[in-house]
Simulated assay, not measured.
Amino acid sequence: MQFLFEIEDVFDIGGRGCVLVPGVPYAFGQDVKTGAQLLIETPQGTQVRTNIVAFEMINRGRPMVHAPFSLPRAVAKSSLPVGSKVYLLGSADV
């Protein structure tokens, strides 16, 4: 399990699902692709296991050094509070 980022914002896009920002750092050092398995741990200790559905293009008005991505529609924005930590799971973690 590898730490990716701490959630700064979540956008709920109708018909697509939630998009997590900032996203996977471009300098992460390994390829992260759609379908990658994630563990999200909230500040309260709740864990959400999910996967990346798609990488999204977001214009935040400044150069980005991360790739935001969306989650399955079944994952509710309310279960993804700001400050939650996002981890990439390896095959041994799944």
Rank of each mutant, 00 (worst) to 15 (best):
M1E: 02
M1R: 07
Q2G: 01
F3W: 04
F3V: 00
F3S: 00
L4N: 03
L4A: 01
F5C: 05
E6F: 00
I7A: 01
I7Y: 01
E8C: 04
D9Q: 13
D9C: 01
V10F: 06
V10R: 04
I13S: 05
I13F: 13
I13D: 02
G17C: 04
V21T: 14
V21M: 14
V21I: 15
P22R: 04
P22W: 09
V24Q: 01
P25H: 10
P25N: 08
Y26Q: 11
Y26H: 15
A27E: 14
F28T: 03
G29M: 11
Q30Y: 09
Q30R: 15
D31M: 11
K33F: 08
K33A: 10
K33C: 03
T34Y: 04
T34E: 15
G35D: 11
Q37Y: 03
Q37S: 14
L38V: 08
E41G: 04
T42H: 09
T42A: 10
T42D: 06
P43E: 07
P43I: 08
Q44L: 13
G45H: 12
T46M: 11
R49G: 00
T50E: 03
V53T: 13
V53G: 00
A54Q: 13
A54W: 06
F55T: 09
E56Y: 05
E56N: 07
M57R: 15
M57E: 15
N59F: 10
G61A: 08
P63Y: 12
M64N: 08
M64Y: 00
V65A: 05
V65M: 01
A67P: 00
A67L: 13
P72N: 04
P72E: 03
A74E: 13
A74S: 14
V75C: 00
A76K: 15
A76M: 06
L80A: 06
L80M: 07
L80C: 09
V82S: 02
V82K: 15
V82D: 00
V86R: 02
V86H: 04
L88K: 08
L88C: 07
L88E: 02
L88W: 07
G90L: 13
S91N: 12
A92D: 13
A92I: 13
D93I: 11
V94N: 12
V94E: 14
V94S: 12
